[in-house]
Design a protein around this nucleic acid. Structure first.
Lengths: 195, 195
DNA sequence: CCTACCGATCGGTAGG
DNA sequence: CCTACCGATCGGTAGG
């Protein structure tokens, strides 16, 4: 997982893993029986880490807006904490397998569709509870939050600058503030708005 | 460039390029004299494409807000037109070299810093012309626009769905609308806002 | 631009 | 978990 988050899943070879572990290549091979299986098991292991480090803390609060904000904050904290040394494992997967056809591309597409869909679900609940304006386009709002989180991940990893995740935080605040019901909007402009 | 945009610059090997071109490996090698040089020349060639396909059309209008909006639209159009078959070459580079140390990481960081700085420059001009509120945080606004563009690129490539770039367009409109001077804001909510 | 080669590494197999 | 091996591919060199 650590190697794949830095150099990509394609760089995770049986030989390199064997060297890292200090055992023989065929010793590693015996555990996975193919490179594809090694990659699949690595994705599965990273999913458990994501569940434990992002979803559980992020969704621990009450349903609706609290969970939506909680997820965004949990994601940015997971990037800042360096849970994976190369930044978010799944952001790496997204960029690595967005274009090449194959099993992994299809899995990544399913995962990302799921993530965006889950965000839309949180938004819908917040709307039904009157915390967000029912008129906002859920798909659009989910896209904008997702964009802020992912770009914070890429740029924080690139620049090695923790302040970059604060750009993501401000963007999340701004996007959510703009989607609040009109009567509750105290700061309609959000992070990048006028002072 | 085409191969690197799909599978990453690390997959662009002398041998593969030779096979693609139908010449011998050492025939290709003679042109570049090292793999590093091949990668550098490929980045340089992609820069020229980016200049021609994004910067020239995007910045052809009058200074200020027109150029800011022009750049965003030119970028999204460049993604939609499939100028590179694997999506934006530089978005691929960003994700591939955000974590690994080395010459290419440093170049990518410089390129991305430059791109964000250029956006801030366009924003500053728009502010001085009264087209954007002088109170907005330029770095934050640039980050939010950039996030919308890059995420549109990754998701459009992943989902092979042209409608995804429209999410980017709506996000750009929304972010810019929120940064307009208060007296000129007709729709303070933008794309994801209430109807 | 070519053939012919180098040592290293790849995924995988045979046999233990 | 091991050694020993397979054919393919890697970046690069020698010599033309």
């Amino acid at each position: 997982m650590r190697l794949a988050s830095i150099e990509g899943l394609s760089s995770l070879t049986i030989g390199r893993l064997a060297r890292t572990l200090g055992i023989s290549k065929s010793g590693v091979f015996a555990h996975f029986r193919s490179k594809e299986r090694l990659q699949q098991e690595t994705i599965a292991a990273a999913s458990e880490v994501f569940q434990r480090e992002v979803l559980e803390p992020g969704l621990s609060g009450p349903e609706g807006l609290t969970q939506l904000e909680g997820f965004c904050e949990a994601y940015l904290s997971y990037v800042e904490r360096g849970v994976f040394p190369g930044g978010c494992f799944f952001a790496q997967l997204l960029a690595e397998f967005d274009a090449p056809d194959g099993t992994i591309h299809d899995q990544v597409a399913a995962f990302q569709r799921d993530a965006l869909g889950s965000l839309e679900g949180l938004i819908e609940t917040a709307q039904s509870q009157g915390e967000l304006d029912p008129g906002v386009d859920r798909g659009q709002l989910a896209f904008e939050l997702y964009a802020a989180l992912e770009m914070a991940n890429y740029l924080a990893t690139l620049f090695r600058d923790p302040a970059t995740t604060d750009r993501g935080r401000a963007a999340v605040r701004s996007v959510i503030a703009r989607a609040r019901p009109v009567e509750e909007r105290e700061d309609p402009t959000g992070g990048a708005g006028p002072r």
